[in-house]
Design a protein around this nucleic acid. Sequence first.
DNA 1: CGTCATGGCCAACACGCGTTGACCACCGCG
DNA 2: CGCGGTGGTCAACGCGTGTTGGCCATGACG
Lengths: 196, 196
Amino acid sequence: MPDRTAAPDSTASPRRSDATRTAILHAARERFAADGYERATIRAIARDARIDPSMVMRYYGSKEGLFAAAVAVDLKLPDLGAVPRHEVGEALVTHFLDLWESNEVLTALLRVGVTNQAGAERVQDIFRDQLLPVARAVCPDPEQVATRAALSASQLLGLALARYVLRLAPAAALHRREIVAWLAPTVQRYLTAPNP
Amino acid sequence: MPDRTAAPDSTASPRRSDATRTAILHAARERFAADGYERATIRAIARDARIDPSMVMRYYGSKEGLFAAAVAVDLKLPDLGAVPRHEVGEALVTHFLDLWESNEVLTALLRVGVTNQAGAERVQDIFRDQLLPVARAVCPDPEQVATRAALSASQLLGLALARYVLRLAPAAALHRREIVAWLAPTVQRYLTAPNP
DNA sequence: CGTCATGGCCAACACGCGTTGACCACCGCG
DNA sequence: CGCGGTGGTCAACGCGTGTTGGCCATGACG
């Protein structure tokens, strides 16, 4: 039996069950995003995908396995080295806004990361493997890259938290361009300002 | 039966059970902070408090009632009107750092607020009743108070999220004075800068 | 046509949960 | 002394959970 827990892409013959697999993943992302890890039950996910709960176990092994497959996310961050230096803040903020609004996988990741140890580690991985390298391309002092990337992450995650998860009314009411106007200078300073 | 669900302080005769009540609240805050709402079981909280689970029900009615009692929090925010205008950012950041590090109740509130509807509403209440009025004392344009307070909250919550909940390594490693040095100008700008 | 892997459903298991109500021990007041 | 309220334990209930294994349909292939 080949390892079919990954996304049904790339090489090799497509199976008849690929539609079911993606339906499960889709429903899982929705439920994890809406309910968090514990309250997103396999039974509910299976109901959304119109299949039997035991199929989820067959294809993903366990609830943890399903979660891991559901939040395997590529942020597709732009190469900040190719962006004018004084626009990196704006580039990052707009990119993250696009991500949050196009895809519920980030909401799922954040919700689960807050409650679940495995989820938190997933967030740490993404920070280390995807955000850190991008920050490295733009930070002045290599020793400060981690700090500056973490500060940027704190502001970007904090806005997503207030806006998409906690739904603080004024944060949810902000227009996209307002968010960019306020946050871009902050991230810009965190990443490129010479000094604290 | 008088309403004894609140903290055992203020007027009226202290009961013999007050020690148990506070022990339950203490254990509840620890568990909610460490595990979130769903995984913080009444049984585990009772075990920590060395009593029977049914006592929790007697004193707090239900798990929801226990949570409400456990996260009734007063941020004790300083009067920003009495602070030099160019120091309000620093004052807020240091105050919040004190809060997060002295008291696990904020961690509990954040963890539960992310997973639980009632928890999210609690955070909204605190934002509206405690942070908004303080921001009003320092914001230039009254129409922008809510926006500016929400932006400040996003940065403060975001740092707490990265540092105390997700435990991103570089955010957890930051020294207190570094956090103040980086975040104070951000919050200062959100609250008092004339323009986006 | 037979056969066998594949996709899918159903029924059940063991477990932990929030919650309930019956029961006991003690202390203070009449 | 008696007795009622207060603080506390114990055992159980009903429910929903993740997970398991057995059974059926179907379609590709020899």
